[in-house]
């Protein structure tokens, strides 16, 4: 465990040795702030227009009108940001040759993989936590449904972890960071759009499989405040798969 944390800490601090971390955080905060502001002002206008109708009352809440779209769009941004965060994790070690240093030290491949996974996870968690200002701000002036917001954040967390695991895998495939980012973005994009055509597929079994593999379908319930173990299981499976494949790739490269 100590070794995992040491590797995690090294990789985490190394984010801040290059400008990429600052650029990613700055862009993320800028976009997140913008979305929040737009969702909030949109909510204000809609509320003024429709609040007198009793049938609209139920949907006119902060959680429904502000945070649901906020979380949905954040998940889209993470789709672009996480490949940039994960791209260098393994590929840079390969390029610098520092794998030779790691593999000849008394650490195992799981130590390395979990360390790197945790490093990227910590980075993303910090990024997500910075957006917690918005619900806190609203909690001061209003009464947002905090449980629903917490559920949304849990959704973003498992989604991000799954993205990181897949990004880590992509990073292990190449020593070029840019190529790693492109591969991981392609994988994430594939999972994102995988069921877009499923309505036109005649075979219901294939359509079901495609629907099951769709990441947004599993994410959307979290934004509604529904924490379903089935969805958590799905994301945990993706994480396990990503980490497992990374391990296989790294191990097999040593045998070659």
């Amino acid at each position: 465990m100590k070794k995992i944390l040491s590797i995690c800490r090294r990789d985490f601090t190394s984010y801040f040795n290059s400008p990429i971390a600052y650029i990613v955080i700055a862009i993320f905060l800028f976009i997140a702030g913008n979305i929040f502001w737009m969702a909030y002002s949109n909510f204000g206008n809609t509320y003024r227009m429709y609040s007198q109708y009793p049938w609209a009352k139920e949907d006119l809440t902060l959680a429904q009108m502000v945070f649901r779209p906020f979380f949905m769009i954040l998940s889209n941004i993470l789709l672009f940001m996480i490949p940039i965060i994960t791209m260098k994790l393994v590929s840079e070690e390969k390029k610098l040759g520092t794998f030779e240093f790691l593999f000849t030290s008394p650490v195992t491949i799981p130590h390395i993989i979990f360390g790197k996974f945790l490093a990227a996870a910590s980075f993303v968690i910090i990024m997500l936590l910075t957006t917690a200002v918005y619900p806190l701000l609203l909690a001061i002036y209003g009464k947002p449904d905090l449980k629903m917001i917490a559920s949304g954040y849990l959704g973003l967390l498992v989604l991000s972890l799954a993205f990181i695991a897949l990004g880590l895998f992509a990073s292990s495939l190449t020593e070029n960071q840019i190529i790693a980012a492109i591969i991981s973005f392609s994988i994430l994009m594939l999972f994102w759009v995988i069921n877009w055509g499923s309505r036109n597929i005649q075979n219901p079994k294939i359509a079901d499989i495609l629907n099951y593999l769709s990441i947004p379908d599993h994410f959307v319930d979290f934004t509604k405040g529904v924490i379903d173990t089935q969805h958590i299981f799905f994301f945990l499976s993706i994480i396990a798969l990503g980490l497992f494949l990374t391990g296989i790739v790294i191990q097999s490269q040593r045998w070659r």
């Binding site: 070794k3 040491s6 040795n17 030290s105 130590h111």
Partner: peptide
């Protein structure tokens, strides 16, 4: 203790932080 050829080093770390990291993973 292994000193590889063309030493592979984390070029973005300082000497001290690299050695501290090495010390930690060597327990």
């Amino acid at each position: 203790g292994y000193m590889p050829e063309n030493p592979p080093l984390y070029t973005d770390m300082t000497v001290k932080s690299f050695l501290t990291f090495a010390a930690k993973i060597r327990s």
